[in-house]
Amino acid sequence: MGASGIGKLPRWLVAFTAVCLFLMHLPVLVLIVFSFNASKFAVTWTGFTLAWYRRLLERDDILHALQASLIVGITATAIAVTLGTLIALALARHRFRGRTIYEGMMYVPIVTPEIVTGISLLVLFVFLRMPLGLATIIIAHVAFCVPFVVVVVVARLAGMDENLEEAAMTLGADEVTTFFRVTLPLLWPGILSAALLSFILSFDDFVITSLVAGSGSSTLPLVIYSMVRRNIEPSINAISALIVVATSVLLYVSDRMSRRNEPSHA
């Protein structure tokens, strides 16, 4: 674009945008800064400390919840990515009856409010007399992650040249070999970003998890929620800060990776 550049925009517009972006980040930034605040009451700065982070390591409930969250996140992501990628391959590469309707239906779980998904799963699990716990959490997480995986992988497949797979077949590779030697290597960045999205959705989920977790198992968001509800102390700031930083790092790394593997559209 020849006539672009922030300098050509009206001043008020740039200022307004700056304020909006600042406000979008202010609360979390404040949270992170005050996670290093020595005061327990957390509103006035009384000095730098790492005490709240050290305190996290002493709390078994947080460590257990972290472990549960990781187990759930990794398992649910592995299952959701496998199921979702297979669906995406069928949608993008095969003609079958009802394809358009199927693709449309994939968006229904995405737009359905979490509270509805959670309640309906709770009702089902109770109806089937399934004990609530890690297993039900994983089942629920896979169910809400699969459609997101499908959307991301279908987008990647749509940008991928179908001739590449046909070329492999004229060179003597059968469908299975073509998949492993051509489709999968080119699809990796898409699968990785789908996995990242799926993991973060799972790791951050509170509403659905709180309904299907039962009393025995707690993931990290459940523990944070009860801490927020009961008494606000700076270790929540510390755990929040860690989550935000970890997410940003993951996001940055995946962004770099997918950029490096961008397929050429030549």
Partner: peptide, 21 residues
């Protein structure tokens, strides 16, 4: 990136940040 980042940040954490303010 500044717009996308909150998109990926835990909604619970961000809501808590509002309480904190």
């Amino acid at each position: 990136f500044l717009v996308v980042l909150p998109f990926w940040t835990s909604f619970l954490v961000r809501t808590f940040a509002m309480i904190f303010l």
